[in-house]
């Protein structure tokens, strides 16, 4: 009898499988990758040509939101994608089927998480490339290490949070609603679409409590010509990572393989009570 496949080959195969799966779900492709790009086009069409003039120089305003939109793409590829897909796959019984195979639990989850990170990376690279090619986004290579590290901390944490929310969502039919209802309003107060300095203070406070705003700002700072040096925002990274750690704990504790309603409860109980 041969051995089990090595861990590395197993994770690579599972990741490839999840990415391929994702690429065949048009609605997921649209919301995760296409929608942020459409926003980029719209933003540029609406006010991309305005300039931001400071005493250090003048830049087109797009230099200040492309990074934020790229960060949002990364969040939608990890958090929204996982919070959406995992409950659907669970209710279809796909997770339960995998549970019957010798694939270890962590192997399946690793495939999910890595695929989300690969998709996020693709989304961010496409977004930044479009920014550079079509909209003269200027890249400061000195800040790219910070962009990469911020990206990794961000996608790791948002993937963990996506898995945590997926574990708490009861049924597949509510998954998309929960994923969007949590991330979209938060995006408006987290400097993704609009950056204002005069928002009501309670909204600023709420935005500061969640990891989206620090992530968007830390990533955007890597493209902000007004930020000097390497652009590492360690405080934000620690804050995001702490949320990620919390998400991991919940995800591991609450992870379920069974479709919702698989354990007989109400109906069988009632039937037994009447006979």
């Amino acid at each position: 009898m041969s051995d089990f496949p090595s861990n590395a080959s197993m994770v690579v195969r599972q990741t490839r499988y999840q990415v391929k799966f994702f690429s065949r779900v048009p609605v997921a492709l649209f919301f995760t990758l296409a929608l942020p790009l459409i926003m980029l086009f719209l933003f540029n069409a609406l006010f991309g040509d305005h300039d931001v003039v400071t005493d250090q120089g003048s830049w087109p305003v797009r230099q200040f939101y492309t990074g934020g939109l790229a960060a949002y793409t990364a969040v939608s590829a990890t958090y929204s994608n996982l919070a959406n897909m995992v409950p659907i796959r669970r209710d279809e019984g796909v997770l339960k089927r995998w549970r019957s195979t010798p694939l270890p639990t962590w192997g399946y989850i690793a495939g999910f998480v890595w695929s989300a990170i690969v998709i996020a990376l693709a989304g961010v690279v496409v977004m930044l490339t479009v920014g550079v090619v079509l909209y003269d986004l200027s890249i400061d290579w000195m800040k790219m290490p910070a962009a990469f590290v911020t990206f990794l901390v961000g996608v790791g944490s948002f993937a963990a949070l996506g898995m945590a929310v997926a574990a708490m969502i009861k049924t597949a039919s509510s998954a998309s609603a929960v994923a969007n209802a949590t991330i979209l309003p938060l995006a408006f107060i987290s400097d993704v679409f609009v950056v204002t300095d005069d928002a009501p203070s309670f909204l600023t406070t709420i935005g500061n409590l969640f990891p989206l705003k620090p992530f968007v700002n830390a990533f955007q700072d890597c493209f902000n010509p007004l930020v000097d040096g390497w652009a590492f925002d360690w405080q934000a990274l620690v804050f995001i990572a702490a949320w990620g750690a919390l998400g991991s704990v919940v995800a591991v504790k609450k992870f379920r393989w069974e479709p919702s309603g698989a354990e007989p409860r109400g109906r069988r109980a009632r039937r037994a009570a009447t006979t």
Partner: peptide, 20 residues
């Protein structure tokens, strides 16, 4: 894992990746 390697399971209802 050793055990699950040696059993085969056909559940009454379980999904399979329809996109594949």
């Amino acid at each position: 894992r050793e055990l699950r390697d040696r059993i085969g399971v056909v559940l009454q209802s379980s999904g399979v990746e329809g996109e594949f």
